[in-house]
């Protein structure tokens, strides 16, 4: 066990799986960096350094720099997965799904079903998401609801370094296509992470706080904000249960329903836009299954229905905050809070 950043945890997971299984290959734009250039090799290790050091260890045959051709290399990774490799492809920013989504949702996701159960596609797509970097509308989105919608894909959102290593390891060992969403604002966040390889099973939520008054279900980086809100509300005598579903597909509906039944109140926190996102999905689940257990209407804390703005003044208003979560909790508790 040692202190590692989210970035190091992801790197270590990929490194250990590449060591364990030589069919694991990594590909993406600047995934090592400096390909064909006169300067330093492994110059970048991915645009934010997550894959740094893999190329010197495993060589250019297994750490493949690609041209800026997302359709070609994401599709290539799908084809390679269906024929015997276990590729980990980096789609640098999830916003770039627009130029390659066909290869993900029409090809990789559907092979198994369309081909009558005869295809095995152990593909991992790593991608960066989320606002807070002043990166504006085309480099800041949270598009995991779009992927969650597609049968055949699994979707994981690690909320800290421990989760990042475990979910990445699990993704590489999984035989179905998995998309891992890495929040760009969390790469430097550190915590104790085991040195040995470990997987975290998909579809098993993590309950990070236990309380009596309100259940907070939060996704990805929002789990940390929900934890902060829960800790701060304690001072007012309000205790919250916080659920990190870890994966949106499969979704641990059991833990969500159980914890909401216990508290009778639900606030869902999702950094995605408010329409057809995880917050609406969880709200629908709860109202359909345990409506009679609810003591108050469900409350959603999400980004607004507008593109991610550039100006720091506007972006700060755009992103869900601890203050907004606390306000939502007080609102579902009603007068006197």
């Amino acid at each position: 066990m040692s202190v590692k950043s989210y970035r190091q945890a992801l790197n270590e997971a990929i490194y250990q799986e590449m060591e364990r299984d030589e069919r694991v290959v990594v590909m993406g734009e600047d995934i090592a960096g400096g390909m064909g250039a006169p300067g330093e090799d492994d110059a970048w290790g991915g645009v934010l350094g997550v894959t740094k050091g893999l190329m010197p260890k495993f060589g250019r045959d297994r750490v493949l720099d690609t041209p800026i051709s997302e359709s070609a290399f994401i599709g290539c990774a799908a084809g390679a997965a269906a024929t015997g490799l276990r590729p980990v492809a980096e789609l640098m920013f999830v916003d770039f799904m627009g130029v390659c989504f066909d290869q993900i949702f029409n090809q990789a996701a559907k092979f198994r079903y369309m081909f009558g159960g005869k295809a095995v596609t152990p593909l991992v797509i790593r991608t960066m998401y989320g606002a807070g970097f002043r990166a504006a509308s085309q480099h800041s989105q949270c598009l995991y609801p779009l992927f969650t919608h597609i049968p055949g894909l699994k979707v994981a959102l690690p909320s800290n370094a421990y989760e990042a290593k475990g979910l990445m390891t699990q993704a590489i060992r999984d035989d179905d296509p998995v998309v891992i969403f890495e929040h760009k604002a969390m790469y430097d966040e550190e915590m104790e992470v085991p040195d040995e390889a470990y997987g975290i099973p998909f579809g098993e939520a993590n309950v990070t706080r236990e309380g009596d008054d309100v259940t907070l279900v939060a996704f990805g980086r929002m789990v940390n904000l929900a934890n902060d809100a829960a800790d701060s509300l304690k001072a007012s005598g309000i205790t919250c249960t916080v659920v990190d579903p870890r994966t949106t597909s499969p979704l641990d509906t059991e833990t969500i329903l159980e914890t909401v039944s216990e508290t009778g109140r639900l606030v869902v926190i999702d950094e995605a836009h408010p329409r057809c996102n995880m917050a609406t999905d969880v709200s629908a689940l709860v109202s359909q299954e345990i409506f009679s257990d609810l003591k108050a209407p469900v409350k959603m804390v999400t980004a607004p229905h507008c593109p991610v703005p550039f100006s720091p003044a506007l972006e700060d208003l755009y992103i869900p905050s601890t203050a907004k979560i606390e306000a939502a909790v007080r609102e579902v508790l009603g007068k006197g809070h």
């Binding site: 069919r23 290959v25 045959d61 297994r62 493949l64 359709s71 070609a72 290399f73 994401i74 599709g75 290539c76 990774a77 799908a78 084809g79 390679a80 997965a81 269906a82 024929t83 015997g84 490799l85 590729p87 066909d102 290869q103 029409n106 090809q107 092979f111 369309m114 081909f115």
Partner: peptide, 25 residues
């Protein structure tokens, strides 16, 4: 046989992948 394909132009990237598998393994 990696599939007929309902998407025009769907196959060429997949074939790069199959070729990569052949080359790597």
């Amino acid at each position: 046989m990696l599939g007929a394909n309902g998407i025009v132009g769907g196959g060429p990237p997949l074939i790069c992948g199959a070729a990569l598998t052949a080359k790597t393994l």
